[in-house]
Design a protein around this nucleic acid. Sequence first.
DNA 1: TAAACTTATTAAAGGCCTTTAATAAGTTTA
DNA 2: TAAACTTATTAAAGGCCTTTAATAAGTTTA
Lengths: 345, 345
Amino acid sequence: MKTAPKSLKLLILSGIRRSLLDLGSATKVELSDKLGISFPTISKFLSQMEKDGEILSSGLDESSGGRRAKRYTYNPDYMLGLAIFLEKTETNYAIFNCAGEVKEQGTIQSVLTDSGMHLLTSSIEALLMANQAIRSLSIGVPGSVKNGRIFYMPGYEQFQDFDIKGYFENLFSIPVVVENDMNAAVLGYHHSKEIKNHQSLVYLYSGQNGPGAGFMINGDVVRGNTFFAGEVSFVPQYDDRNFREALENGTSHKEVLISRDNQVDAISRLVASITAIINPHTFIFCKDEVEGTLIEKIAAASSKYIPPEHLPVLAISDWKQDYLYGLQSLGLALMLDSPEKFIRK
Amino acid sequence: MKTAPKSLKLLILSGIRRSLLDLGSATKVELSDKLGISFPTISKFLSQMEKDGEILSSGLDESSGGRRAKRYTYNPDYMLGLAIFLEKTETNYAIFNCAGEVKEQGTIQSVLTDSGMHLLTSSIEALLMANQAIRSLSIGVPGSVKNGRIFYMPGYEQFQDFDIKGYFENLFSIPVVVENDMNAAVLGYHHSKEIKNHQSLVYLYSGQNGPGAGFMINGDVVRGNTFFAGEVSFVPQYDDRNFREALENGTSHKEVLISRDNQVDAISRLVASITAIINPHTFIFCKDEVEGTLIEKIAAASSKYIPPEHLPVLAISDWKQDYLYGLQSLGLALMLDSPEKFIRK
DNA sequence: TAAACTTATTAAAGGCCTTTAATAAGTTTA
DNA sequence: TAAACTTATTAAAGGCCTTTAATAAGTTTA
């Protein structure tokens, strides 16, 4: 129930930023109407932002019968974000601007090692020095995260309980967000596809440690009481097999592509279970795991279990791309709302 | 992204109300600290509220080394709420105050009939006339509700698409909330047990139309894309049976109490599925459907499917009572935040 | 083409909350 | 028991956003 009336100024600022980025461009009247903030206030903020180079004037509108209005756009390069993807075999990074354009991309060796933190720190430092406009840091990790702290990352126990967010915020005076890879991907899909009204999503993938899923319900990522949400391997599906066993049944080695009929039935049962429980709007598969023709088979098989009108849209998407989008949108949110303490002169 | 800076006054008012009810009583300094609102502002609001009879002075605190502070309490009878439960065979109502105490309770004949709306309207009117302090109306219905409008209520098609909220708000100039019975119950459990941190809940019940469940995830009730969320009957559980079929298997007539071993396995599989998907904190059964000893059997059976440390707390609760609590807390929220337009002089 | 009319922008006045200073009302200590 | 000290409350001054009035800069019409 805690509210912070102090931050009215920041609220207005982030409202203006978001609106300009959303709309592409706007006049003072348009911003005032959209945000419900008076014209003089908008005017005051815009003139300061123009002085700072945060917004640009893009000329005058055609007259609508009276004085022509000035039109403004957001300068997408005013602030940049740095996204870092920690993976087993390598570490990728991307520097992006407020319009979501990637300005620079690269790979360094994996930091998920014993002395990895030092390498990660020095790499970030170098990137920050070379790009003074960077104002946010988003880090994706293959593990559970709670308030920026690694909660559980199987295989990398040395990171257990490490407060990545706090560490880097202190070190670099820059807002930091840390998120699980799957949650970032479902978030990225949500933003990039411009899902409206907080429609619920499920993102299914086959990880090295068996299948898992990311959930977004009512606009929030679902983590679960013990961060076990999405461990759909364990869903009991047949008399004597759970989802994971049903998927693997009969195959000794792991195939990437899903194709056999018993696998189709297992997946359609999972779709049915999830539909009967949370009734999501869209169910997303990874494009390197599921082929287009398979989608129809899964849809047909699912409707044996659930009235078809309640089944979700089955979609195929690019997991890596969605992961990047997710870290971008988390970083963007930090930049647009960044509290004063982090603003560098 | 829409914010309403106009309502700062209402924000302060509802903050003060909630704090006084939460804490039982408070001084001006305590309120100012808790709400982050300056002392003079708190002081201004409190003196007006005391004039109105909305708060009461409960004397002076012991001195903590200086001038003794005045202590205030909320007058719980300043506003009352009316909760109405529409059921197949009868209609129950309860009038409650801001402390959640039921002041009056009663039953009228069912209004889920062809001419039921007139009866409901005249009954509410009579109750409002007799109790001028009523400032909110909460209506529970056995069907899907979307923004106060009946979306789907099997068996009562005459109510399809009827905007109950809009109708009564117009008619009586009083804020109205309409909610599905199961959602209200899970909400009521959430509030009455003072579940913290938005821990997720599942409420399982055996309705006349087969079993169903209510979900609360991250503090929000889950409705689903086509309002199908919670229709756990359809969860595929065995080679050739879904949850409903597994529960009924072998019984021709319906028993209220759950007891047989195959039923225990079906329920534990449902607990396992839901845990692997959303990993809730608590799983609630109805006390007239499940006996205490059965809980342990279910817990033991579930841990065959899921590592026990991730299993939810299994709880037994009184559905009717939780339903009432749910409608009460919905009504209370309306009263505490009620917009000016509804305030009667 | 100048008067009438629109619409955008700037300036002035007002409202409301916060910060700071002054006062009130206690308790503790020499 | 009066001076010193605490804490609550009230009063005054200041900041910030909104509302309203005035001005600027166009277009349309007679």
